[in-house]
């Protein structure tokens, strides 16, 4: 009986440890890179307006955030590749005459759905946070 209880407790400990390991080990963001979930949302939302290449996506994020979101541009490409692999993006090469070729990314139908879902989730999260911050009396003066 005691052995069974101990083993059950052990499995519980294992579950918690595995959760900590999974959140701590494979996070793609380091230093000035983007957090994976944040970057995915940003890329999907920016591409809602139309197809863009990687440099354009990075500059658009900086422009829309009024330079509040500054990050290592190279960390954007792993996100683009992961989204392409999961079917949310499609890409092709373009080579305007006299210029270097560039890879242009566009949302697929599933990517469009993911983008809208991500926007809804962020709005809900933002509303909830505003309410909590407001409830503590830390609202900004009008």
């Amino acid at each position: 009986m005691l052995g069974a209880v101990v083993q059950l407790c052990h499995f519980g400990v294992q579950y918690v440890l595995i959760s900590r390991i999974s959140t701590g080990k494979l996070r793609m963001a380091e230093d000035k890179g983007l957090q994976k979930s944040t970057a995915t949302t940003l890329v999907l939302v920016v591409l809602l307006d139309g197809a863009r290449h990687g440099y354009d996506i990075a500059r658009e994020v900086e422009r829309r955030s009024e330079n509040r979101l500054m990050f290592s541009h190279g960390t954007l490409y792993p996100v683009l590749y992961a989204l392409e692999k999961s079917g949310d993006l499609e890409s092709c090469w373009e080579q305007p005459i006299g210029e270097r070729k560039r890879r242009v990314y566009a949302l697929t139908d599933s990517g469009r759905r993911e983008a809208e879902k991500a926007i809804a989730e962020w709005r809900e999260f933002s509303t909830a946070m505003s309410k909590v911050i407001g409830a503590n009396g830390h609202e900004q003066p009008a």
Binding site: E30, G33, G74, Y81, A82
Partner: peptide, 22 residues
């Protein structure tokens, strides 16, 4: 400098191709 450390980016790209997909 703005683009980022090449070994770090290479690791992330490898991870995204290894971990990505459905």
């Amino acid at each position: 400098q703005q683009y980022g450390d090449p070994s770090q980016i290479a690791d992330q790209i490898t991870l995204s191709l290894y971990e990505g997909g459905r």
